[in-house]
Amino acid sequence: MSSTDLRGSTGPSGSTALVTGATSGIGRAVAQRLAEQGARVVLHGRDRARGEAVEKEITRQGGTARFVAADLTDAEDTLRLAAEAGEVDILVNNAGVYDLRPTARTDAAAFDRHFAVNTRAPFLLVGALAPGMVRRGRGAIVTIGSSAARSPAPIGGAYAASKAAVETLTRYWATEFGGSGVRVNAVSPGPVRTEGLSAIFGDGLDVLDRVNARGRVGEAEEIADAAAFLAGPASSYVNGAVLYADGGEVSTLPG
């Protein structure tokens, strides 16, 4: 390997990272992990109080973070987020919405909201921030996908389609930007124990333990470790990959 092969590699230490949906669940865990590894983290969310709480928590632990509120259902607000984040070396597209209804009960507004947040917002953020990474010759973009994109179920079609779309975009971006030192990858989690999933399943969350070979729901920190790997120099030759972090799926939701 020549001394220049890894010149474009980006690692969390000393980098600036924008993490969308960083006020809870997987996004919060990713932000904390990157901050632990030395990144200056720009936290995104809708709720300022929750965002500032995460910011204080990271600061208290010796990290560096600042919060920017934005509504990703609004294209202009999404672009404002990119502008306020400034020059970032790592972009983690984590923010997402999911409404697990059957098709006949999913109206146009719900469908559009899934694609606005889960697909269009990452598209706009990559379009706004990747050119700066290209100019600097380095960068890492990590998108949080979903096993729903490849494991059909009788509910949640709009959510699954929006995640399948962004995983496809990940491969296209890897081709578009990979030659300029910017790596683009995705993590595709199975069910993860988060506030959002618990709100949907309540006491029945344990039923999801039966959908993967590990026999348990994942933890947000485990997905954060996968995202941090893809954002760091240890994955310098990984580009255009969708990393399955799902415990080894064996079936769809039991019914």
Rank of each mutant, 00 (worst) to 15 (best):
V88Y: 05
D89S: 08
I90G: 06
L91D: 07
V92G: 02
N94G: 05
N94F: 02
V97S: 04
V97R: 00
Y98F: 15
Y98V: 13
L100E: 08
L100S: 07
L100N: 12
P102S: 11
T106K: 04
A108G: 03
A108H: 09
A108S: 14
A110G: 10
F111C: 04
F111L: 15
D112P: 01
R113E: 12
H114Q: 05
A116S: 14
V117G: 08
N118D: 12
R120Q: 10
R120M: 10
A121E: 09
A121F: 02
P122E: 08
F123E: 10
F123H: 15
L124H: 07
L125C: 06
V126M: 04
G127D: 11
G127H: 12
A128F: 07
A128H: 05
A128P: 15
P131Y: 03
M133F: 11
M133H: 08
R136N: 12
G137S: 13
G137E: 10
G137P: 13
G137V: 12
I141S: 04
V142R: 01
V142C: 02
V142M: 00
T143I: 03
I144C: 14
G145Y: 03
S146W: 01
S147T: 11
S147C: 05
A148E: 03
A148M: 07
A149Q: 01
A149T: 08
S151R: 15
P152S: 03
A153K: 12
A153L: 09
P154L: 01
A158P: 06
A158R: 00
Y159C: 07
A160P: 06
A160W: 00
S162N: 07
S162I: 01
S162L: 07
K163N: 08
A164C: 06
A164T: 04
V166K: 00
T168K: 06
L169K: 02
L169I: 01
A174I: 00
T175F: 10
E176K: 14
F177D: 12
F177N: 11
F177W: 12
S180G: 08
V182I: 06
V182Y: 12
R183F: 05
V184H: 07
N185M: 06
N185D: 10
A186L: 05
V187Y: 02
V187I: 11
S188M: 09
P189I: 00
G190Q: 06
P191S: 09
I200E: 13
G202R: 00
D206M: 03
V207Q: 14
V207S: 15
L208R: 10
D209N: 15
V211C: 14
A213L: 12
A213T: 09
G215M: 05
G215R: 05
G215F: 04
